[in-house]
Protein backbone atom coordinates (compact mmCIF):
# COMPACT_ATOMS: atom_id res chain seq x y z
CA UNK A 1 0.00 0.00 0.00
CA UNK A 2 1.20 3.51 -0.69
CA UNK A 3 2.71 5.51 2.11
CA UNK A 4 0.09 7.11 4.35
CA UNK A 5 -0.36 10.88 4.28
CA UNK A 6 -0.36 10.97 8.05
CA UNK A 7 0.73 8.27 10.45
CA UNK A 8 0.32 8.57 14.18
CA UNK A 9 2.18 6.21 16.53
CA UNK A 10 1.83 5.98 20.28
CA UNK A 11 0.52 9.53 20.37
CA UNK A 12 0.05 10.68 23.95
CA UNK A 13 -0.97 13.94 25.57
CA UNK A 14 -1.17 14.42 29.30
CA UNK A 15 -2.27 17.68 30.86
CA UNK A 16 -1.08 18.48 34.37
CA UNK A 17 -3.82 19.79 36.65
CA UNK A 18 -3.71 21.02 40.20
CA UNK A 19 -6.82 20.25 42.16
CA UNK A 20 -6.02 22.56 44.99
CA UNK A 21 -3.32 24.51 46.75
CA UNK A 22 -0.60 22.11 47.98
CA UNK A 23 -2.29 19.22 46.20
CA UNK A 24 -0.03 16.92 44.27
CA UNK A 25 -0.35 17.72 40.56
CA UNK A 26 -2.46 15.15 38.79
CA UNK A 27 -2.50 14.32 35.11
CA UNK A 28 -5.39 14.20 32.71
CA UNK A 29 -4.50 11.53 30.20
CA UNK A 30 -6.44 13.12 27.35
CA UNK A 31 -4.85 11.01 24.64
CA UNK A 32 -3.04 7.90 25.76
CA UNK A 33 -1.02 6.07 23.16
CA UNK A 34 -3.06 5.96 19.96
CA UNK A 35 -2.02 4.71 16.52
CA UNK A 36 -3.68 5.35 13.20
CA UNK A 37 -2.84 6.18 9.61
CA UNK A 38 -4.68 8.20 6.98
CA UNK A 39 -4.02 7.45 3.32
CA UNK A 40 -4.32 9.75 0.33
CA UNK A 41 -7.91 10.44 -0.69
CA UNK A 42 -9.23 8.61 2.36
CA UNK A 43 -11.51 9.68 5.19
CA UNK A 44 -10.81 8.41 8.68
CA UNK A 45 -13.69 8.95 11.08
CA UNK A 46 -12.89 9.56 14.74
CA UNK A 47 -15.90 9.00 16.94
CA UNK A 48 -16.45 9.23 20.66
CA UNK A 49 -18.23 11.15 23.39
CA UNK A 50 -17.10 14.41 24.95
CA UNK A 51 -13.86 13.99 26.84
CA UNK A 52 -12.67 10.98 24.85
CA UNK A 53 -9.71 12.89 23.42
CA UNK A 54 -10.80 13.40 19.85
CA UNK A 55 -10.34 17.17 19.87
CA UNK A 56 -6.97 16.85 21.66
CA UNK A 57 -5.90 14.46 18.90
CA UNK A 58 -6.78 17.08 16.29
CA UNK A 59 -4.86 19.75 18.22
CA UNK A 60 -1.78 17.56 18.27
CA UNK A 61 -1.98 17.00 14.54
CA UNK A 62 -2.47 20.73 13.94
CA UNK A 63 0.57 21.55 16.12
CA UNK A 64 -1.57 23.54 18.54
CA UNK A 65 -0.26 21.38 21.39
CA UNK A 66 3.02 19.49 21.68
CA UNK A 67 2.56 15.75 22.32
CA UNK A 68 3.76 14.25 25.63
CA UNK A 69 4.99 11.17 23.79
CA UNK A 70 4.62 9.43 20.46
CA UNK A 71 5.16 10.58 16.92
CA UNK A 72 3.27 12.03 13.99
CA UNK A 73 4.71 11.28 10.57
CA UNK A 74 3.63 13.29 7.55
CA UNK A 75 4.27 11.62 4.20
CA UNK A 76 6.80 9.35 5.89
CA UNK A 77 8.75 11.97 7.86
CA UNK A 78 8.46 12.70 11.57
CA UNK A 79 7.07 16.22 12.01
CA UNK A 80 8.85 16.68 15.36
CA UNK A 81 12.02 17.59 13.47
CA UNK A 82 10.31 20.01 11.08
CA UNK A 83 11.76 23.52 10.97
CA UNK A 84 11.63 26.46 8.60
CA UNK A 85 10.40 25.59 5.11
CA UNK A 86 9.44 22.02 6.06
CA UNK A 87 7.26 23.28 8.87
CA UNK A 88 5.68 25.85 6.53
CA UNK A 89 4.97 23.09 4.05
CA UNK A 90 3.28 21.02 6.77
CA UNK A 91 1.15 23.94 7.92
CA UNK A 92 0.12 24.52 4.31
CA UNK A 93 -0.72 20.89 3.72
CA UNK A 94 -2.75 20.26 6.89
CA UNK A 95 -5.77 22.47 7.43
CA UNK A 96 -8.80 22.50 9.70
CA UNK A 97 -12.53 23.25 9.58
CA UNK A 98 -14.18 23.84 12.95
CA UNK A 99 -17.68 23.12 14.16
CA UNK A 100 -18.98 26.64 14.50
CA UNK A 101 -18.59 28.82 11.41
CA UNK A 102 -19.96 31.75 13.42
CA UNK A 103 -16.88 31.93 15.61
CA UNK A 104 -14.22 30.53 13.29
CA UNK A 105 -14.44 33.36 10.73
CA UNK A 106 -13.32 36.85 11.70
CA UNK A 107 -16.32 39.22 11.53
CA UNK A 108 -14.05 42.09 10.50
CA UNK A 109 -12.57 40.49 7.42
CA UNK A 110 -14.03 40.15 3.96
CA UNK A 111 -14.36 36.63 2.62
CA UNK A 112 -11.56 37.20 0.13
CA UNK A 113 -9.20 38.29 2.90
CA UNK A 114 -10.18 35.33 5.06
CA UNK A 115 -9.37 32.91 2.26
CA UNK A 116 -6.27 34.82 1.14
CA UNK A 117 -4.71 34.95 4.61
CA UNK A 118 -3.15 31.45 4.56
CA UNK A 119 -1.93 32.15 1.02
CA UNK A 120 -0.24 35.38 2.08
CA UNK A 121 1.42 33.69 5.04
CA UNK A 122 2.41 30.40 3.50
CA UNK A 123 3.08 31.16 -0.18
CA UNK A 124 5.01 33.61 -2.33
CA UNK A 125 2.12 34.15 -4.72
CA UNK A 126 1.55 37.60 -6.23
CA UNK A 127 -1.57 39.59 -5.38
CA UNK A 128 -3.15 38.74 -8.71
CA UNK A 129 -2.40 35.05 -8.32
CA UNK A 130 -3.88 35.07 -4.81
CA UNK A 131 -7.05 36.70 -6.08
CA UNK A 132 -7.34 34.12 -8.83
CA UNK A 133 -6.82 31.32 -6.31
CA UNK A 134 -9.52 32.78 -4.02
CA UNK A 135 -11.99 32.75 -6.89
CA UNK A 136 -10.99 29.19 -7.79
CA UNK A 137 -11.60 27.81 -4.32
CA UNK A 138 -14.87 29.72 -3.94
CA UNK A 139 -16.02 28.06 -7.13
CA UNK A 140 -14.85 24.68 -5.82
CA UNK A 141 -17.11 24.98 -2.77
CA UNK A 142 -20.04 26.18 -4.86
CA UNK A 143 -20.07 29.89 -4.04
CA UNK A 144 -20.23 32.55 -6.77
CA UNK A 145 -17.03 34.66 -7.07
CA UNK A 146 -18.83 37.93 -6.26
CA UNK A 147 -19.30 36.85 -2.62
CA UNK A 148 -15.57 37.53 -2.13
CA UNK A 149 -16.34 41.15 -1.20
CA UNK A 150 -18.85 40.24 1.50
CA UNK A 151 -18.40 39.89 5.27
CA UNK A 152 -19.20 36.65 7.15
CA UNK A 153 -22.34 38.08 8.78
CA UNK A 154 -23.90 38.38 5.34
CA UNK A 155 -23.91 34.58 5.03
CA UNK A 156 -26.02 31.80 6.46
CA UNK A 157 -24.44 29.02 8.53
CA UNK A 158 -24.10 26.65 5.60
CA UNK A 159 -22.49 29.30 3.40
CA UNK A 160 -20.08 30.25 6.17
CA UNK A 161 -19.05 26.64 6.51
CA UNK A 162 -18.38 26.66 2.74
CA UNK A 163 -16.15 29.70 3.23
CA UNK A 164 -14.28 27.84 6.00
CA UNK A 165 -13.83 24.87 3.68
CA UNK A 166 -12.64 27.17 0.88
CA UNK A 167 -10.05 28.65 3.25
CA UNK A 168 -8.90 25.16 4.20
CA UNK A 169 -8.50 24.27 0.53
CA UNK A 170 -6.73 27.47 -0.54
CA UNK A 171 -3.20 26.25 0.06
CA UNK A 172 -1.77 23.05 -1.36
CA UNK A 173 -3.89 21.06 1.08
CA UNK A 174 -3.49 17.31 1.48
CA UNK A 175 -5.28 16.70 4.78
CA UNK A 176 -8.22 18.54 6.34
CA UNK A 177 -9.16 17.96 9.95
CA UNK A 178 -12.95 18.31 10.06
CA UNK A 179 -13.95 18.86 13.69
CA UNK A 180 -17.73 18.27 13.81
CA UNK A 181 -18.20 20.36 10.65
CA UNK A 182 -21.97 19.90 10.33
CA UNK A 183 -23.12 19.72 13.96
CA UNK A 184 -23.91 23.43 14.15
CA UNK A 185 -25.81 23.54 10.85
CA UNK A 186 -29.50 23.24 10.09
CA UNK A 187 -30.58 19.73 9.17
CA UNK A 188 -31.52 20.62 5.62
CA UNK A 189 -28.13 22.27 5.07
CA UNK A 190 -26.03 19.43 6.54
CA UNK A 191 -26.54 17.18 3.53
CA UNK A 192 -25.33 20.00 1.23
CA UNK A 193 -22.05 20.26 3.12
CA UNK A 194 -21.53 16.50 3.42
CA UNK A 195 -22.13 16.01 -0.31
CA UNK A 196 -19.80 18.94 -1.05
CA UNK A 197 -17.04 17.44 1.09
CA UNK A 198 -17.40 14.08 -0.62
CA UNK A 199 -17.35 15.71 -4.03
CA UNK A 200 -14.21 17.71 -3.20
CA UNK A 201 -12.46 14.57 -2.03
CA UNK A 202 -13.30 12.76 -5.27
CA UNK A 203 -12.05 15.60 -7.46
CA UNK A 204 -9.03 16.77 -5.43
CA UNK A 205 -7.91 13.56 -3.70
CA UNK A 206 -7.61 15.36 -0.37
CA UNK A 207 -7.70 13.26 2.83
CA UNK A 208 -10.02 13.93 5.76
CA UNK A 209 -9.89 13.27 9.46
CA UNK A 210 -13.59 13.53 10.27
CA UNK A 211 -14.30 14.03 13.97
CA UNK A 212 -17.86 13.54 15.10
CA UNK A 213 -20.22 12.08 17.65
CA UNK A 214 -23.11 11.17 15.35
CA UNK A 215 -22.57 7.60 14.24
CA UNK A 216 -24.73 7.79 11.11
CA UNK A 217 -22.97 10.91 9.80
CA UNK A 218 -19.47 9.62 10.56
CA UNK A 219 -20.26 6.21 9.04
CA UNK A 220 -21.66 7.89 5.96
CA UNK A 221 -18.62 9.97 5.12
CA UNK A 222 -15.75 7.77 6.43
CA UNK A 223 -13.88 4.92 4.78
CA UNK A 224 -12.55 3.73 8.12
CA UNK A 225 -13.64 4.58 11.65
CA UNK A 226 -11.71 4.72 14.91
CA UNK A 227 -13.79 4.63 18.09
CA UNK A 228 -12.25 6.47 21.05
CA UNK A 229 -13.05 6.10 24.73
CA UNK A 230 -11.17 8.01 27.45
CA UNK A 231 -8.03 8.66 25.43
CA UNK A 232 -7.74 5.23 23.83
CA UNK A 233 -8.82 3.80 20.50
CA UNK A 234 -10.99 0.83 21.48
CA UNK A 235 -11.93 -0.29 17.99
CA UNK A 236 -10.95 0.52 14.43
CA UNK A 237 -12.38 -0.95 11.23
CA UNK A 238 -13.74 -0.26 7.77
CA UNK A 239 -16.90 1.77 7.96
CA UNK A 240 -19.00 -1.08 6.51
CA UNK A 241 -17.45 -3.73 8.74
CA UNK A 242 -17.96 -1.62 11.82
CA UNK A 243 -21.63 -1.03 10.99
CA UNK A 244 -22.29 -4.70 10.24
CA UNK A 245 -20.25 -6.23 13.01
CA UNK A 246 -19.20 -3.95 15.84
CA UNK A 247 -17.10 -5.95 18.31
CA UNK A 248 -16.22 -3.75 21.26
CA UNK A 249 -19.04 -3.42 23.84
CA UNK A 250 -18.60 0.36 23.73
CA UNK A 251 -19.04 0.45 19.95
CA UNK A 252 -22.11 -1.75 20.39
CA UNK A 253 -23.40 0.70 22.99
CA UNK A 254 -22.92 3.58 20.56
CA UNK A 255 -24.95 1.69 17.96
CA UNK A 256 -27.62 0.90 20.54
CA UNK A 257 -27.78 4.59 21.43
CA UNK A 258 -27.99 5.70 17.80
CA UNK A 259 -31.40 7.02 16.91
CA UNK A 260 -33.58 4.98 14.53
CA UNK A 261 -34.21 6.23 11.01
CA UNK A 262 -37.73 4.83 11.03
CA UNK A 263 -40.25 4.23 13.85
CA UNK A 264 -40.39 0.53 12.91
CA UNK A 265 -36.62 0.01 13.13
CA UNK A 266 -35.89 -2.94 15.41
CA UNK A 267 -35.89 -1.76 19.01
CA UNK A 268 -32.42 -1.68 20.46
CA UNK A 269 -31.84 -3.35 23.75
CA UNK A 270 -31.32 -0.98 26.63
CA UNK A 271 -28.35 1.30 26.33
CA UNK A 272 -25.44 1.27 28.73
CA UNK A 273 -25.88 2.83 32.13
CA UNK A 274 -23.69 5.39 33.82
CA UNK A 275 -21.53 8.17 32.50
CA UNK A 276 -17.97 8.52 31.28
CA UNK A 277 -15.70 8.43 34.36
CA UNK A 278 -13.42 11.37 35.10
CA UNK A 279 -10.21 11.40 33.10
CA UNK A 280 -8.45 12.33 36.36
CA UNK A 281 -9.29 9.01 37.99
CA UNK A 282 -9.20 6.48 35.19
CA UNK A 283 -10.51 3.03 36.04
CA UNK A 284 -7.81 0.36 36.32
CA UNK A 285 -7.64 -2.27 33.60
CA UNK A 286 -10.01 -1.65 30.71
CA UNK A 287 -11.28 1.92 30.94
CA UNK A 288 -14.74 0.86 29.87
CA UNK A 289 -15.21 -1.90 32.46
CA UNK A 290 -17.18 0.34 34.85
CA UNK A 291 -19.99 0.66 32.28
CA UNK A 292 -19.50 -2.54 30.33
CA UNK A 293 -22.36 -5.06 30.41
CA UNK A 294 -19.94 -7.89 29.55
CA UNK A 295 -17.23 -7.05 32.10
CA UNK A 296 -15.24 -9.97 33.51
CA UNK A 297 -12.89 -10.02 36.52
CA UNK A 298 -9.85 -9.67 34.27
CA UNK A 299 -11.20 -6.41 32.82
CA UNK A 300 -10.63 -4.47 36.04
CA UNK A 301 -7.04 -5.69 36.27
CA UNK A 302 -5.44 -5.92 32.85
CA UNK A 303 -5.75 -3.30 30.15
CA UNK A 304 -6.58 -5.05 26.86
CA UNK A 305 -4.25 -4.23 23.95
CA UNK A 306 -5.56 -3.20 20.54
CA UNK A 307 -5.36 -6.44 18.54
CA UNK A 308 -5.78 -6.94 14.83
CA UNK A 309 -8.23 -9.65 13.80
CA UNK A 310 -8.87 -11.37 10.49
CA UNK A 311 -10.04 -8.84 7.95
CA UNK A 312 -8.08 -6.06 9.58
CA UNK A 313 -10.62 -5.10 12.23
CA UNK A 314 -8.81 -3.97 15.38
CA UNK A 315 -10.35 -4.17 18.83
CA UNK A 316 -9.11 -3.71 22.38
CA UNK A 317 -11.24 -6.07 24.47
CA UNK A 318 -10.67 -9.21 26.54
CA UNK A 319 -13.68 -10.89 24.91
CA UNK A 320 -11.74 -11.46 21.70
Amino acid sequence: MAEPVLEVRGLTKHFPVRQGFMARPARVRAVDGIDFAIHAGETLGLIGESGCGKTTTSKLILLQEPPTAGSIAFEGRDIAGFKGPELMDYRRAVQVVFQDPFSSLSPRMRVEDIIAEPLEIHTELSKGAIRARVHDVLELVGLPPDVARLFPHEFSGGQRQRVAIARALATDTRLIVLDEPVSALDVSVRAQIINQLEHLQRTLGVSYLFIGHDLATVAHISDRIAVMYLGKIVEMADSDTLCKQPLHPYTKALFAAALPSHPDDPKQERTIAGEVPSALALPAGCRFHTRCPMAMPVCSEVEPPLQTRDGGQRVACHLY
Partner: peptide, 9 residues
Protein backbone atom coordinates in the same frame (compact mmCIF):
# COMPACT_ATOMS: atom_id res chain seq x y z
CA UNK B 1 -33.88 12.03 2.31
CA UNK B 2 -31.21 14.36 3.67
CA UNK B 3 -30.41 12.33 6.81
CA UNK B 4 -27.56 9.80 6.71
CA UNK B 5 -28.77 6.28 7.47
CA UNK B 6 -26.59 3.72 9.19
CA UNK B 7 -25.22 1.16 6.78
CA UNK B 8 -25.95 3.18 3.65
CA UNK B 9 -23.43 5.37 1.87
Amino acid sequence: GSIPKLGSR
